[in-house]
Simulated scan of single mutants.
Amino acid sequence: MVSQITQWTLDVRDTDRMAEFWSRVLGYRVEKGDDGCAKLYPPDDAPPGTLTVWLQRVDASKAGKNRNHPDLNPTDGDVEAEVERLLALGARHTDVGQTDADPFVVLADPEGNEFCVLRNRTREV
């Protein structure tokens, strides 16, 4: 038996702000819970197995570099246009030690959580 990753969970301080950001980044719909958390669901026409996102409300601020993060691929393949769109939504460039030769752009969401926009469909090793 093996397991499959079905959800990405992110601790957040401002659930509303982060639900707005990540739902617009991914094109997901938001369902807010009574507990201060929110679940983001992919569109109905998304491929089977598409991850959901759980935004878990916490009081603690983010400290240090994330130990894991999502890697995104623009659906139309236009990395530069997607990076500009994400910056307009509230992302910012951040430095985690990457170089200009790396096949990805590193950004951070409004609370500083890092994520990558891949220049290729899969990360090259």
Rank of each mutant, 00 (worst) to 15 (best):
L107D: 14
T50E: 02
R24A: 07
N68V: 14
V58M: 07
M1E: 07
Y41S: 09
Q4L: 05
P42T: 02
G112W: 05
N66T: 14
Q7S: 03
V117W: 14
V105N: 15
R92Q: 14
F104E: 02
D102R: 15
D14I: 01
K32L: 03
P110T: 03
A88I: 10
A81G: 12
P47E: 04
D44P: 03
G112M: 02
N66Y: 14
V53H: 05
V12G: 02
V117I: 03
D71R: 06
E111H: 07
P48S: 04
G27I: 00
D109F: 11
K32E: 01
A60I: 11
S23G: 01
P70S: 10
C116Q: 08
I5Y: 04
N120D: 07
D78G: 05
E20R: 01
R57M: 06
E114C: 09
A108N: 06
N68L: 14
D16E: 01
D109Q: 06
G64C: 07
N120A: 08
Q7A: 02
E111N: 04
P47C: 10
P43W: 13
R29T: 01
M18D: 02
T99R: 15
R17G: 03
E84S: 14
T94A: 06
Q56C: 10
R17C: 01
K62I: 07
P70N: 09
G33P: 02
L118S: 09
G33Q: 09
P43N: 04
